[in-house]
């Protein structure tokens, strides 16, 4: 009944061969990412509805975000994807040290991203831009501007949550890599986690322009 067959190949009992096991794992990961697309999709849908209803309020509200910090975070996150890709490459080459270095790099950039996010959130809190009963926008209680910030916090918050989960998994993977669990022929965890991490990055690539950059265009067209 044991789920682990501690053979050198890592083949689990209910699969015929290691190839089938890898394919199943990869397909499972892609299917999971599809669910994630729809999970964020609900938020993007709400964003589309409200931005088309209140384009000017969204631009005004967006101009209160710090484009520089957002831009830095975009670069940081792209770097974390690079280190993740290097970790997967190292796994294919069988370099234990390479895997761990790549993961640590990913962890490092992820931590910077979250740190910057904390600074941004703190700034919004100080300026009463957190939706709720204390919300004040340019001296007013704010109407649709509050919707913008509700979506801002919901979307970046869910995104940040995914990064935190990812970083917990990285810790676990570093432990496994240290133990030598990954071989050139068998490292599905590294590969599938790479997919996850890149997905979380791509979500940010959409979030950044939709949330940060629409304010820069104020007045160009409605």
């Amino acid at each position: 009944m044991s789920d682990h067959a501690h053979s050198t190949t890592g083949l689990v009992h209910h699969f015929d061969d290691i190839e089938q096991q890898h394919e199943a794992g990869t397909l499972g990961m892609w299917a999971f990412l599809i669910t994630e697309v729809l999970f964020f999709g609900g938020l993007f849908g709400a964003y589309a509805v409200y931005r088309s209803a209140y384009p000017e309020a969204f631009m005004r509200a967006s101009s209160h975000l710090d484009v520089d910090l957002g831009g830095v975070n975009t670069i940081v996150l792209i770097c974390s994807s690079l280190t993740m890709a290097l970790s997967v490459y190292a796994a294919q080459k069988g370099s234990k040290r390479g895997i761990i270095m790549g993961l640590l790099g990913t962890m490092f950039f992820g931590a910077i991203f979250l740190g910057v996010k904390v600074i941004e959130y703190k700034d919004k809190w100080d300026h009463h831009l957190v939706p709720g009963d204390n919300f004040i926008f340019e001296g007013n209680p704010g109407g649709p501007e509050q919707l913008y910030f509700a979506l801002y916090f919901a979307m970046t918050g869910v995104h940040a949550f995914h990064m935190i989960v990812g970083m917990v998994i990285i810790c676990w993977m570093i432990k496994k890599a240290h133990r030598g669990d990954f071989t050139p022929g068998h490292h599905p965890l590294v590969e599938n986690f790479g997919l996850y991490w890149h997905f979380v990055d791509i979500v940010w690539i959409f979030l950044f322009p939709l949330l940060y950059l629409i304010g820069a265009h104020s007045g160009s067209h409605t």
Partner: peptide
């Protein structure tokens, strides 16, 4: 199901923090 999840999450946020959504 993920869309339902995000929907009831927004509802819970609206309910708890009055975010206005």
């Amino acid at each position: 199901t993920p869309v339902l999840a995000i929907t009831v999450m927004l509802l819970a946020l609206e309910r708890t923090f009055h975010i206005g959504i």
